[in-house]
Every structure is written in structure tokens, then in C-alpha cells.
Simulated assay, not measured.
Amino acid sequence: MDVVTLGETMVLFTPEHAGPMRYSDRFSSRVAGAESNVAIGLARLGVQSGWMSRLGNDEFGKKIRSFIRGEGVDTSRVIFDETADTGLFFKEKLANGEWRVKYYRRDSAASRLKPEDLDESYIAGAKYLHVTGITPALSDSCYETVLSAIEYAKRHDVKVVFDPNLRRKLWPEHKARKVLVELVRKADIVLPGIEEAEFLFGIGSPEELARQFNEQGASTVIMKLGEEGAYYLTHDTERYVEGFRVTEVVDPVGAGDGFSAGVLSGLLDGLNLEDSVQRGNAIGAMAVLAAGDIEGLPEKDRLIDFMHNRGQGDVER
């Protein structure tokens, strides 16, 4: 296995028409979750990826596992919970570029993840462990599970990749800040957005904020800057990598997950860090051109074509 990740995936319902949901009577359903988005993005790029979680033993849980497995992701470490339900959420489009999300995930099956659910040998067999700041926000047992997964990775020289993926609604800000910084200290590669960096360390330039992450212990910091691209910092190099500007954002959700998949796939393909970050920028741009969390994540031939023809169509560089 190249990359393993863990976290909650839910069924997403979206009204067919824009406007407040109270006026909607028809909804489409999709499968969405930050960590499984990354795993799917990697699988489409030819990377062996695995996703660990708990799902309710209900139709929604079966739908999620079937869908993710159908995308080529290994789901052999997914556990079905007989006593808790699969989480759901709704995303309404109020106007162009304006979305509102409502979650129904309290006491979901995934929130009951516990360290005993992990298979140490499964993590040990990977090259990267990918975790986000969403999972530890779900419950104390989820927090302990993330710490255990990182401990197993460290024990077997598996690199830890951490995306803070801040969700303010899930926990108090003081607790979020404390836990996210704790996880930064345990990670090898950190993938924050500029807003998340400011949440953790205050207002500053990308260079100043990246150094804060570096001083906490992360050897590689790759900061997402939206359409401006990204900035990375290691112990011996730093650089801005220009982004791909899109003419219209259809759906911004999932762009960061696509970025993570792009960077990790580049590193696994033997690209240098700059080229890997450029790949992440490209997939992030492609992700916002399609509705849904994973619909815009490309296979490798389409990604290469997109990057070679970046001055045409809906994207410019």
C-alpha cells in the first residue's frame, strides 16, 4: 500500500435547484469525506490507497463502502457498526459561489472509531499515513485513534502527512488550536491552508507562517494559497509555486483534498517537491470546475493533458 488514511465519510444530499432547502423537494446523493476524497484522488492517479473507518450497518454505509471500493480504494479495514448510523450532510447552493452545509453526524458510527479498530501491520505496510484535523474533532475516541495511527506510523518509519482541515463547528476554538498544533508537531509533511495557518499562529505572510509550522517540528510545510498557488518550506529550500486560475468556480469543496492527492502522487512518482506541488495546484483547480467533492478529480492522462494545455479553456496560468 502506498497511502493509508482514516476518517469519516458521509452521504451528501444536494438540492437539484439553487436557493434555500425549504423549497426543495428533489435531492441528488453523493459520497463525500475529506480522507476518502484523498484516497479516491490517489487511486485515480494509479496510487495504491486504503481507507479505514467505521460505517453504520445500514444502506448508507453499504452505499459508501461500495462506492469507495468501486473507485479502486482498499476498504478491507472498514468496520460496520451494528448500533450506530452512518453520518449524513446537506449542501445547499444559495447563489453562485455561495454554499451552506449542514451536518447530521453526532454519535455517528465513524465518531466511535477507537484505537482497537486499527491494524498496525496495515499502517506499517504503507509509505505514507494521511490524517486530517477533522477526525480528532469528532470524539475523544477518534482523537485517540489518530494518535495511535501516528504512533504506529512512526514506529515503522511511515511518513505522516497532516492536513489541518479546520472545521470550526465541530469543536471549541481553544481545543481545536491545541490539538491541531499537537498533530503538527507529530507530522512530517503539513498541508495547511492560509486561513488555517492564521487560525493557529496569527496573521502573517506565508513565509512567516510556514516557519511557525517548521519550528513546531514539521520538516516539510506546503501552504495552500487558493488561486495564487502554494508556498512550500523545508529545512533547506522554500519556493512559491504558481497556481492555475479558473474562470468560474462551480464548487470549491474538495479542492484541498485534490491538492493533497496531487502532491502525494507526485512524490510517489519520484517528482521533486516543486513539481509535486504544481501537480497539487493543477488538481485543486480541476476539482473546482465540477460539482461534487470527487467528480473533478482526474485520472493521470487527463491531468497531464490539463497541465500541458493550461492556457486554454476555463483555466489560465
Results as ranks from 00 to 15, higher is better:
R112S: 07
V249A: 07
Y232L: 13
W171S: 13
L12I: 09
M286T: 05
G133A: 01
Y104C: 12
L297N: 04
V47N: 04
V253P: 12
D2V: 11
G87C: 10
L113T: 07
R168V: 15
M307A: 09
V38N: 11
I189V: 13
A149D: 06
R69D: 15
R177Q: 07
S66F: 09
A261Y: 03
L233E: 06
G262K: 02
K300I: 13
K186A: 11
V277M: 00
V249I: 07
T237Q: 14
Y152V: 11
S141F: 02
F67M: 12
I79A: 01
F13P: 01
R106W: 10
G262A: 00
R167F: 02
D251T: 02
M52R: 09
K300R: 15
L297T: 06
A290I: 10
L271V: 09
V11M: 01
G87Y: 08
D301Q: 11
W171H: 11
K159M: 15
A32R: 01
L209I: 13
F89R: 02
L113S: 05
H235W: 12
P252S: 05
G262C: 05
R105M: 08
G7C: 01
L170W: 07
G7I: 01
I64D: 07
S139P: 03
G87K: 09
T9W: 08
H130A: 05
L42N: 02
E274R: 14
M307N: 02
V160S: 02
G193M: 13
E35Y: 05
L138I: 10
G61T: 02
V11R: 00
A197K: 05
R112H: 14
D117Q: 06
R106S: 13
F67V: 12
K186G: 10
